[in-house]
Design a protein around this nucleic acid. Structure first.
Lengths: 255, 255
DNA sequence: CGCAGGTTTGAGAGGAGTCAAGGGTTGTGG
DNA sequence: CCACAACCCTTGACTCCTCTCAAACCTGCG
């Protein structure tokens, strides 16, 4: 790999390469995409409900959430983005999605025009496949959330969420006591798990009293990772964090 | 378009073309993919939990569901497939997904080896994009389900589900009284909306008493489409059933 | 200091789950 | 042809989880 000028897209390229084998051509294509940095205040719309967008957002720092809402205005967060995520890569192929995208905290994003992403994908099929794969992994996380929201009672439900956040924030094998920056409000947690803020508060209290987790000012302290994982029925497989865990023999199609 | 030998994949090609502009090369590439028909009894696994697959399934007739489960074995259906759906296209790029795929009723599927789908996508970037787009639309439906399961009380929740099924089964504008084949049990409905079968039964009773829907032996009769849509807070936009509703200027990248 | 936004706690109401029993259909085997 | 089992649907009574409403308490900030 030859050295390229440092690009703000580098961490995002690394994310792609976690799941897909890319060659120099693909790497260059990604790093050459034009990008614009934007700062976001907390609770600021990146994409409004039903809005049609022209570029996609990569999250550099902060927390973003995609959510829908019911008629009464109650919001349900369908997914959360952490630094390093291609937050709305899907909008490249479906520019008008029913979900809004909002910052939960002060965040900085990198905007890349759809045209360039699409062109890169059109001229480079391995890259197209990598993008496609990222979107599918995203969807796998939704599915896990569906199970969480649809089936688990409050305590395991919140535990599961916190386990996921821990795995996605930290890397490497987790163990013992952990501390995670996750600067969202209990209101936000409620919107993620499909409960009311009041009930999330009581659930957090239970988790605290069990000596499992403390959540203060958006700082999550997991006191016993193993036991929390038990309680949350959490198995990190669906996150596909293992390098190449899902790459399907990228180069074996020499026919 | 020149005439090609009739292929069982034709309806699935049509589905792709609903969302993506394809040329003759792409059409041929799809229709030339080898395919194997398989029959499924009700409640038969197509893909087991955590299994790794080598071909993807297109649903010709019947109903398929993708579901996860919590530790106690409670199942949550994350999505339902109706005839014409590329049921697990996503498995082409992520062959090991955490969700199982099962038939809910007697079904017939068409299996296409991953290799061939992947090869078609690699050699034809418009097709790759079309596949990617299908997966993203799938995910948009998950998101809507998240809102449904996470936020709506029983009656609107079930109403919303039935509205979606109606829109996806029938085509054209809906109105007045409708009848839909949806041969699943109340148990299955419960797994879709995240409730118990008993509670689904009571909810169906309410819908019936309101004169909105009758569900008998897997046959759904919607007595008042407009009002059901109201009750279910249903807006079909997310299904992307309008032709070309999400195609992003497929051919405007002549650079 | 006073205000706003977030957190904590309580009391009461209501929605959904559980357990259990009875009723219909369908299909199979005697 | 009938008996029986299996499966699904239906209903009731009771429990429990979560929501609602409301008040108090923090904490940071203008």
């Amino acid at each position: 790999m030859q050295s390229l000028a440092p690009s703000p897209l580098e961490p995002f390229l690394r994310r792609l390469e976690l799941h897909s084998e890319l060659g120099d051509a693909e790497r260059e294509a990604v790093l050459r995409m034009p990008s614009f940095i934007a700062e976001l205040a907390p609770n600021q719309d990146v994409i409004g409900l039903g809005e049609k967008v022209e570029h996609c957002c990569l999250l550099q720092s902060g927390v973003l959430a995609r959510f829908g809402q019911d008629r009464s205005g109650q919001r349900q967060i369908a997914s959360v983005n952490l630094p390093g995520d291609w937050a709305d890569l899907h909008s490249v192929v479906v520019p008008k999605v029913g979900c809004a995208l909002q910052s939960l905290t002060r965040s900085t994003i990198i905007k890349v025009p759809h045209d360039h992403v699409r062109r890169a994908a059109r001229t480079n099929s391995l890259l197209a496949e990598a993008f496609w794969r990222e979107c599918v992994i995203d969807a796998a996380i939704f599915q896990e959330w569906m199970v969480n929201v649809g089936r688990r009672p409050a305590v395991p439900r919140l535990a599961h969420l916190l386990c996921e956040i821990a795995c996605r924030s930290l890397d490497g094998p987790l163990e013992g006591e952990l501390e995670i920056e996750f600067p969202v409000t209990q209101q936000h947690l409620a919107e993620m798990v499909g409960h009311t803020p009041v009930h999330v508060n009581r659930t957090l209290k239970k988790l605290r009293e069990e000596g499992l987790v403390t959540f203060v000012h958006g700082c999550v302290t997991i006191h016993d990772w193993h036991r929390l994982q038990q309680v949350g029925e959490f198995d990190p497989g669906y996150l596909h964090l293992e390098s190449q865990s899902c790459v399907a023999s990228a180069y074996n199609l020499d026919s």
